[in-house]
């Protein structure tokens, strides 16, 4: 009985994945763009990465699902641990990492040649996997991305027929279909109107019940609304980007330790 109970607990814990970046440095050719970033992303937390343009937030995000290495001339030092396993260890298939660490991009980018349903299932098709019940998966993913009610009657319509906000929620649903443990979001609302932004923020809060979310944002209020912890990135004149301050979101915004953080969150620069 006890054994069973403890097994159950372990298996539940196994579902919760945490991510950790240790001493990450990034180069593009000879240019050192990111220096010594160490951040922890506990299971089921939402972390906001904030900072002015060009400070390396998005670049850092792309190291977390091995998208960074696809850029010609990209270099990396440091370690990323996903459940205590180094995702850059030799022999690790980057595809297997990307299946566990999903990504939503700045500009909504549903596949224009596919239907709404086809977009949700695109990840399965692209990674050559199957599911028992496609319709059920489509419904549950669209539901979690809170777009099901808007599209349930036109699942076979092309994805391009949706509005920008709907397209972005479709892209979230598309990532969810692969049941990732981590979801990376690169300024997911920057191309959207306030209404769509609010709905996506609600979705993020809901998703964080069983998923770890890392979100890059330029919007300070958004960081405060959705995140548990915040990292402030900054690239000072001629220096590579680095993390100035990292901690609990409320603390970071109300009582920052570093004067540069205070200036930034109060809108004095950036």
């Amino acid at each position: 009985m006890d054994v069973q109970a403890s097994n159950l607990t372990t298996s539940l814990l196994d579902r919760e994945s945490h991510l950790e970046a240790r001493n990450i440095h990034v180069w593009f050719k000879e240019r050192h763009v990111l220096s010594d970033v160490s951040l922890q992303f506990p299971a089921n937390s939402v972390t906001a990465l904030i900072g002015p343009s060009g400070c390396g937030k998005s670049t850092f995000l792309r190291t977390l699902n091995r998208m960074h290495e696809l850029i010609p001339g990209a270099g990396l030092a440091g370690t990323i641990y996903l459940d205590n396993e180094d995702i850059y260890a030799p022999g690790v298939d980057p595809v297997s990492i990307r299946l566990r660490v999903g990504m939503v991009f700045q500009k909504p980018n549903p596949f224009p040649t596919m239907t709404i349903k086809g977009n949700v299932l695109a990840g399965l098709r692209l990674s050559n996997r199957r599911t028992r019940d496609e319709n059920e998966l489509v419904e549950s993913c669209l539901n979690r991305a809170s777009i099901w009610n808007e599209v349930k009657d036109r699942l076979d319509a092309p994805a391009g027929s949706l509005s920008g906000g709907q397209q972005q929620r479709l892209c979230i649903a598309r990532s969810l279909a692969l049941a990732p443990d981590i979801l990376l979001m690169d300024e997911p609302c920057s191309a959207l109107d306030p209404g769509s932004t609010r709905r996506i923020e609600e979705t993020i809060r809901e998703l964080s019940a069983d998923m770890t979310v890392v979100i890059v944002t330029h919007n300070m209020q958004q960081a405060q609304r959705v995140s548990d912890q915040t990292a402030f990135f900054l690239a000072e004149e001629g220096q590579p980007g680095h993390v100035v301050e990292f901690g609990n979101t409320d603390n970071l915004f109300s009582a920052p330790n570093d004067p540069r953080t205070e200036d930034y969150v109060n809108g004095r620069f950036g």
Binding site: N65, M67, L70, V95, S96, R98, L99, G102, M103, F105, N109, F111, T113, A122, G123, R125, L126, S127, N128, C171, R174, S175, L178
Partner: peptide
């Protein structure tokens, strides 16, 4: 990028996207 992030390989990206 979207295709790669969804676990697409070179071949499946070529074929499906």
């Amino acid at each position: 990028s979207a295709s790669t992030a969804l676990g697409g390989t070179n071949f499946s990206t070529m074929r499906r996207v």
